[in-house]
Lab assay of single mutants.
Amino acid sequence: NITNLCPFDEVFNATRFASVYAWNRKRISNCVADYSVLYNFAPFFAFKCYGVSPTKLNDLCFTNVYADSFVIRGNEVSQIAPGQTGNIADYNYKLPDDFTGCVIAWNSNKLDSKVGGNYNYLYRLFRKSNLKPFERDISTEIYQAGNKPCNGVAGFNCYFPLRSYGFRPTYGVGHQPYRVVVLSFELLHAPATVCGPKKST
Score class of each variant (00 low, 15 high):
Arg168Leu: 01
Cys61Val: 10
Asn157Val: 02
Tyr121Ser: 06
Cys6Lys: 05
Gln144Pro: 08
Lys198Gln: 14
Asn118Gln: 09
Val153Cys: 09
Tyr50Asn: 01
Phe44Gly: 14
Asn40Thr: 13
Lys148Asp: 11
Asp137Phe: 04
Phe44Leu: 12
Phe167Val: 00
Arg124Cys: 01
Lys128Asp: 12
Glu141Val: 10
Cys61Tyr: 07
Asn130Glu: 11
Pro149Tyr: 10
Cys61Ser: 11
Ala154His: 06
Thr193Met: 11
Tyr93Gly: 00
Lys110Met: 08
Cys102Gln: 03
Glu135Ala: 09
Asp34Asn: 11
Gly196Ala: 11
Ser108Gly: 06
Asn107Ile: 02
Leu122Tyr: 12
Val181Met: 06
Phe47Cys: 08
Ala105Phe: 08
Glu10Thr: 10
Glu76Phe: 03
Val11Asp: 03
Thr55Ala: 14
Asp9Trp: 11
Thr201Cys: 13
Gly155Asn: 06
Ser29Glu: 12
Ile28Met: 15
Ser200Tyr: 14
Lys48Glu: 09
Ala89Thr: 00
Thr140Pro: 10
Asn40His: 13
Pro96Glu: 04
Gly196Asp: 12
Val180Ile: 10
Asp97Ala: 13
Pro7Val: 10
Phe134Glu: 07
Phe12Ser: 03
Ser164Trp: 05
His189Pro: 15
Thr170Met: 06
Leu122Glu: 13
Pro82Gly: 03
Ala154Ser: 15
Arg163Thr: 15
Phe41Tyr: 15
Phe167Arg: 02
Ile2Asp: 12
Gln144Asn: 15
Phe134Val: 05
Ala89Tyr: 03
Ala42His: 11
Thr55Met: 13
Val52Ala: 08
Asn157Leu: 02
Asp98Phe: 08
Gly83Ala: 08
Phe126Asn: 05
Ser78Asp: 12
Leu111Glu: 13
Pro191Lys: 13
Lys56Phe: 07
Ser36Gly: 11
Ala190Cys: 08
Phe99Ser: 01
Arg179Cys: 00
Asp98Asn: 15
Asn4Pro: 10
Asp68Pro: 02
Asn30Arg: 08
Val71Asp: 00
Tyr178Leu: 11
Tyr178Met: 14
Ile142Gly: 02
Cys31Asp: 07
Phe17Glu: 02
Val181Gly: 01
Pro133Gln: 07
Leu60Ala: 10
Asn1Ile: 09
Asp34Cys: 07
Tyr50Val: 03
Gly174Leu: 11
Gln144Asp: 08
Ser19Asp: 07
Ala67Thr: 06
Leu131Cys: 04
Gln79His: 05
Arg124Leu: 00
Asn75Lys: 14
Asn24Lys: 15
Asn107Leu: 03
Pro54Arg: 14
Ser113Tyr: 01
Asp34Phe: 05
Phe8Trp: 10
Lys132Gln: 13
Val11Trp: 07
Thr193His: 12
Val37Trp: 13
Asn24Asp: 14
Phe8Asp: 02
Lys148Phe: 11
Lys110Ile: 07
Val194Leu: 11
Arg168Asp: 00
Phe45Thr: 15
Phe134Met: 09
Pro197Ile: 15
Thr201Leu: 14
Thr170Asp: 01
Asn87Gly: 10
Trp23Phe: 11
Asn118Met: 06
Asn130Ser: 14
Ala33Cys: 10
Leu111Val: 13
Tyr165Arg: 02
Asn58Lys: 13
Asn58Asp: 13
Asn151Val: 10
Leu5Cys: 10
Pro191Ile: 07
Leu131Gly: 01
Tyr35Glu: 07
Lys94Gly: 04
Val103Asn: 00
Cys61Arg: 13
Tyr165Leu: 05
Leu57Lys: 06
Gly196Asn: 12
Glu141Ile: 09
Ile72Met: 06
Thr140Asp: 14
Asn13Glu: 08
Pro133Val: 06
Lys199Glu: 13
Phe134Gly: 13
Gly174Ile: 04
Ala46Arg: 14
Gly101Phe: 01
Arg27Leu: 11
Val182Asn: 00
Asn64Leu: 08
Thr140Gln: 06
Phe70Met: 05
Lys56Ser: 14
Val71Lys: 03
Arg136Ala: 07
Ala33Ser: 10
Gln144Leu: 04
Asn24Trp: 04
Val115Leu: 14
Thr85Leu: 07
Lys94Asn: 07
Asn147Pro: 11
Ile138Gln: 12
Gln144Thr: 07
Val194Glu: 12
Val52Tyr: 09
Tyr91Met: 08
Pro161Phe: 03
Asn4Leu: 09
Thr3Ile: 09
Arg73Asn: 13
Leu111Thr: 04
Asn58Trp: 07
Lys56Arg: 12
His175Gln: 04
Asn24Gln: 14
